[in-house]
Design a binder for these strands. Structure first.
Length: 602
RNA sequence: UGCCGGAUGGUGUAAUGGUAGCACGACUGACUCUGGAUCAGUCUGUCAAGGUUCGAAUCCUUGUCCGGCAGCCA
């Protein structure tokens, strides 16, 4: 099927299901009757906040669950206690919930709180299984790989007993050296042929805490001659006397990713384990572990796709953490961050992010997606849903001299021209208004449509005004414009249909209120900040500008969930920093500005 | 130079032996009480060379280039 790339007006939810090579595989598996139910999973490690790359994965995994009437488990892949934290567990849950709300939340697999795998019997073989909570009445929580430590340990024991794993006493450095390199020979562990009994004893004593960190490991006995590094007797358990955020001090040995992940997938009954390309070389190990355990239920299979890269940003959790720690941004949810929480705080609707994930597709090609694609879906969504308002970012005072001192009138303003149902509102107008400083030029370049000395411009929803006089301070700065209005030019008036080249936005000086407005720009100045050298060299010093804007009165009742378009400027959303006396707005994104482009050409 | 993957306009992605399409972008123009939106149009591509075939982006061969893999991270 062709990939239908037309974004539908309502966004991804009403659009036809996308098609890609992974969905093709799932479709074929369903057609072959391979599984009762399709089960995917989203398995982040709680060692950082989720970013837009994870959003791609979430949309893929939950999208598949949704399209095939399956389920997608949220699982904390928490096998390394030294890097993980509950703060991250909580943020991950919040971000996932936000992204899938109203779209795939009915496909979200969570488990009863505190539940660990059941020991069951399948085909007369003992087996471990943990399914999702069936009813929403019980307290639920995400799945945790760490909830399977007992079972994973049991599986390790089995491998040892089968002579397929052994305890190795080499130091990390030795193991490193002996493993060889992709193009170099390896050397066997001196402990490889240790007896099963001895390995068993040692492994149990590792678990009992008898040995310090780093002194021994459990290794799978596979093939030291394999051209695939990951098959050269990989370490599957290491000693770490560290407190774990979820299991506390119950363990001092922890399974490695490769061992824990495939088994976690198996325990949960995952059918399609979808991950990024860098795990492709791990797939033989994933399969080896499952196949060598003689498991009774169908085995999960791993499929890999290309991780997302977006221009002018970075995706590495390590580097994002650096930005946070070094206070280059205000936190993980700084609106300039590519994190889901940052994007949310900036004012981007979840629906737009889903549409983005849908538009970029899923392949095995590692490319860089143009930020313009992201910006486009945000604008498209917001254009359709945002309430229009008038706000002036950099005010310039305009006195309309042919209006009486205390003149006040209300004009009707359309809330959303794309959505008549959004209705209208009143905007107050008076003798003194504020316009955007950019909307006046004393000596404008050609094709400048706005106000100039002696020129005319339409004040949106109000009158056409003519600039009679430019008032300057001692330093020569323009401080005020004195204009006359064509009083017949308001809606319904005799000259209402006069053609004036430009229409500008304004607020009534007497009625407007002040708010802090944060104007964001891209965080980096180059399209590939971490291509080479220090990515911090490319940080955009102007990624945030804070202004005190003047806003129309109705915006005083702005709500956190609502999105606004300040006409001719861009889309804005209320920031959580808002105080009753001091509203704070974030600029989500500017409107397209063909005039700015025109100027750049000049 | 070991193994695993990949290569289609500027970017991202379709076409699964039968007209190389879509989206973003760029550029024209129309319209406009948002230089927004909308509408109409234009632009640019199958990594290379051979082969199979009536017919190849697709199959085969050889090559080129790019990415990943040498954590007791995930």
């Amino acid at each position: 099927m062709a990939n239908p790339t037309h974004p539908s007006p309502a966004g991804a939810e009403s659009a036809p299901a996308p098609s890609d090579f992974i969905r093709d595989i799932v479709k074929a598996d369903v057609a072959a009757g391979k599984y009762k139910k399709i089960v995917t999973r989203f398995p982040p490690e709680p060692n950082g906040y989720l970013h837009i790359g994870h959003a791609k994965s979430i949309c893929l995994n939950f999208g598949i669950a949704r399209e095939f009437q399956g389920q997608c488990n949220l699982r904390m892949d928490d096998t390394n206690p030294t890097k993980e934290d509950v703060e991250y567990v909580e943020s991950i849950q919040q971000d996932v919930n936000w992204l899938i709300a109203g779209w795939a939340d009915d496909r979200l697999g969570l488990k009863p709180k505190g539940k660990t795998p059941d020991t069951i019997t399948v085909d007369a073989k003992p087996d471990f299984y943990l399914g999702p909570a069936e009813s929403s009445t019980t307290a639920v929580e995400p799945f945790y790989a760490s909830d399977y430590f007992d079972q994973i340990y049991e599986y390790a024991l089995q491998l040892v007993k089968k002579g397929k794993a052994y305890v190795c006493d080499h130091t990390a450095e030795e193991v490193d050296k002996m493993r060889g390199a992709p193009d170099k020979q390896s050397e066997q562990s001196h402990y490889r042929d240790r007896s099963i009994e001895e390995s068993l004893d040692l492994f149990q004593r590792m678990r009992a805490g008898e040995f310090p960190d780093g002194t021994r490991t459990l290794r799978a006995k596979i093939d030291m001659l394999s051209p695939n590094i990951w098959m050269r007797d990989p370490v599957i358990y290491r000693i770490r006397h560290a407190e774990h955020h979820h299991t506390g001090n119950a363990w001092c040995i922890y399974p490695m990713y490769d061992f824990a992940h495939c088994l976690s997938d198996y325990i949960e009954g995952i059918t399609h384990s979808i991950c990024t390309l860098e795990f492709e070389v791990h797939r033989p190990l994933y399969d080896w572990i499952l196949e060598n355990l003689g498991l009774p239920r169908p085995l999960p299979h791993q499929f890999e796709f290309a991780r997302l890269s977006v221009g002018y940003t970075i995706m590495s959790k390590r580097k994002l953490l650096q930005l946070v720690n070094e206070k280059i941004v205000t936190g993980w949810d700084d609106p300039r961050m590519p994190t889901i929480s940052g994007i949310r705080r900036r004012g981007v609707p979840a629906r737009a992010l889903r549409q983005f994930a849908y538009n970029i597709g899923v392949t095995k090609y590692n490319g860089i997606t143009d930020v313009a694609v992201l910006e486009h879906v945000i604008r498209t969504d917001l254009n359709q849903h945002a309430q229009r308002r008038l706000g002036v970012l950099r005010p310039l005072k305009v006195v309309i001299t042919n209006l009486p001192e205390n003149h006040v009138e209300q004009f009707d303003a359309v809330n959303n021209p794309e959505d008549p149902a959004a209705g209208k509102r009143h905007v107050p107008f008076g003798r003194t208004v504020c316009i955007e400083r950019d909307d006046f030029m004393e000596t404008p370049p050609p094709k400048y449509f706005r106000l100039r000395p002696g020129g005319e411009v339409r004040l949106k929803y109000a009158y056409v005004i003519k600039c009679d006089e430019v008032v300057k301070d001692a330093a020569g700065n323009i401080v005020e414009l004195r204009c006359t209005a064509d009083l017949g030019s308001k809606l319904g008036g005799p000259t209402a249909n006069r053609k004036v080249k430009g229409t500008i936005h304004w607020v009534s000086a007497a009625h407007a209120f002040e708010a802090e407005v944060r104007l964001y720009d891209r965080l980096f100045t180059v399209s590939e900040p971490d291509a080479e050298g220090d990515f911090k060299k490319h940080i955009n010093p102007h990624s945030l500008e804070v202004v005190t804007a003047k806003l129309e009165p109705s915006l005083a009742k702005a709500s956190a969930g609502e999105r606004y378009q300040f006409e001719r400027l861009g889309y804005f959303a209320l920031d959580p920093d808002t105080q009753p006396a001091r509203p704070v707005f974030n600029r989500t994104i500017t409107l397209k500005d063909t005039w700015a482009k025109e100027q750049q050409k000049a």
